[in-house]
Structure formats: structure tokens, C-alpha cells
């Protein structure tokens, strides 16, 4: 096995282990929010679309780093965008929490009896009605930019691995590949969280659901604050 293939294995394993720790903390609330918007039997494909989007973003970033090797410059260039994405993710979680707790009617989150009144509730409604499977791909593409320590670490490795190639295309491919295998490694943990959140019998325990939604709102606010501070 070549040194690059070994690196791929190492970063796949890193993705897998980090997935059950770090990623569940950061991306878990997002996949929970998404799963609550889906029926029990429909979570797999939309979640895979979300992860495909997320990993595509990782791959593009890895490719750029593989070619340029300029970790500090590239990450500085997208820092403000990442800040915005962190705040956006927080807002999505808060909105889903509000809908989940019944404080804001959100159409298909809890049924089809929604009647939109006002700009904000109409906006919430549109967000909550994102049930088209393909809509999860752009969401993943955007949220793939969420600032994350292990993602940064893998980007550093992508920059280094790209330096081993004279050929630009091969350098991009090597950098992208590293990010992609890392991203794939994180999927099992996040799918597990999505599956837990989508259990049908859990969705109808109103009291517990309210507690869960309050926790979700708190977490969304935490994301927003971290985004502002970032």
C-alpha cells in the first residue's frame, strides 16, 4: 500500500471515529432537524443526498487545497462564508425546534393543517416543506462549509498530499480524494442519529417532544452565538 493509500485509510478511519464524537455534536442537530421533517421510511435517500452534497463540498475544498497547498489563504478566504453558514445552520435548528414544539405551525412537520399567515410563518412553512429529496443536496453543499476542526485537519493533509504531485490534476484529485474518504467515514454516525430521530412512535410523544424541541432551540441559539463569535 502506497503512502497516499495509507493516508486514505487513516482519514477514513478518522472520519468514522470523529463521526461518533465531534460530528454528532456539530452536524447531529442538523440531521435530526432534517429527519424530523421526513417520514420514518424516507430518511435514507434524503440523508444520503445531504451527505453527498456535504462531501462534494469537502471534495472541492480538498481539490483546491491539493492544488494550491495554501491552507491559511483558502480558509481565510472562506471564513466569512463559514460564519454565515454557522448562523444559518443555527437558524434552521431553531426554526425546526419551534415547529417541533408546536410554537410555530410548520405544515408537514406535524401534519397538513398548516395555514400560512405572515411573512415569517410563510418562510418557516417553505423551509419545513422541503421534502423533495433533491433539495437535500444543495443543503448539504452549503452546510459542508460549516467550520469544523477535524475538517480543517483533513484539509491540511489534503494540502500536503497535493504537494507530492507535479501534475495539477493529480494533486487536485489526491486532495479531493482525501476529503471525500474522510466525509464518507463520518456518514454512519450521522445516519444513526437520523434514524433515531425519525422513529415514528417517538414523534407522537408530545410531552417528550416539547422537551426535545426546547433543547433543540437552545442548541440552535448556541450555534448562532458561536457563528457570531466566529
Amino acid at each position: 500500500m502506497s503512502s497516499i493509500e495509507t493516508l486514505y485509510v487513516i482519514f477514513f478511519i478518522t472520519g468514522f471515529t470523529v463521526g461518533f464524537g465531534h460530528c454528532i455534536g456539530m452536524c447531529g442537530p442538523i440531521v435530526v432537524s432534517m429527519s424530523l421533517n421526513l417520514g420514518e421510511k424516507r430518511i435514507l435517500i434524503p440523508n444520503l443526498f445531504y451527505h453527498a452534497g456535504r462531501i462534494t463540498t469537502y471534495g472541492v475544498l480538498g481539490g483546491i487545497l491539493g492544488v494550491t497547498g495554501a491552507f491559511a489563504r483558502v480558509t481565510a478566504g472562506i471564513a466569512n462564508l463559514q460564519k454565515g453558514v454557522l448562523i444559518f445552520a443555527g437558524l434552521v435548528i431553531v426554526i425546526m425546534g419551534l415547529g417541533m414544539g408546536g410554537w410555530v405551525y410548520m405544515g408537514k412537520v406535524f401534519g397538513d393543517d398548516y395555514r400560512s399567515t405572515g411573512i415569517i410563518t410563510r418562510g418557516f412553512s417553505k423551509l419545513s416543506k422541503v421534502q423533495s429529496t433533491s433539495a437535500y443536496l444543495p443543503l448539504g453543499l452549503l452546510l459542508g462549509l460549516l467550520p469544523c476542526g477535524p475538517v480543517y485537519t483533513t484539509l491540511i493533509a489534503s494540502a500536503r498530499v497535493g504537494m507530492e504531485f507535479q501534475n495539477t490534476f493529480k494533486a487536485a484529485l489526491a486532495g479531493a480524494g482525501l476529503m471525500v474518504v474522510f466525509g464518507i467515514g463520518t456518514i454512519p454516525a450521522l445516519l444513526l442519529v437520523a434514524r433515531l430521530a425519525s422513529m415514528e412512535w417517538l414523534r407522537y410523544r408530545e410531552g417528550i417532544y416539547k422537551i426535545g424541541s426546547m433543547l433543540m432551540i437552545a442548541l440552535g441559539i448556541y450555534f448562532i452565538i458561536k457563528g457570531i463569535q466566529y
Binding site: H22, I24, G25, V32, L202, R205, I208, A218
Partner: peptide, 25 residues
């Protein structure tokens, strides 16, 4: 029993999703 089961799942779910980062911190 069903309630307790639900509660346990929620605790598990949110300990996974919400408390990991603060605990690590």
C-alpha cells in the same frame, strides 16, 4: 413503559446530538 422508553431514547439522542460538544469542552 412506552413513555419511559421514549424518554430513554430522547436522552440518548440528545446526549449524542447536544451534549457531546459541551462535554468535550
Amino acid at each position: 413503559l412506552h413513555w419511559l422508553k421514549s424518554l430513554c431514547i430522547w436522552i440518548l439522542l440528545y446526549s449524542l446530538t447536544m451534549f457531546i460538544v459541551p462535554l468535550q469542552a
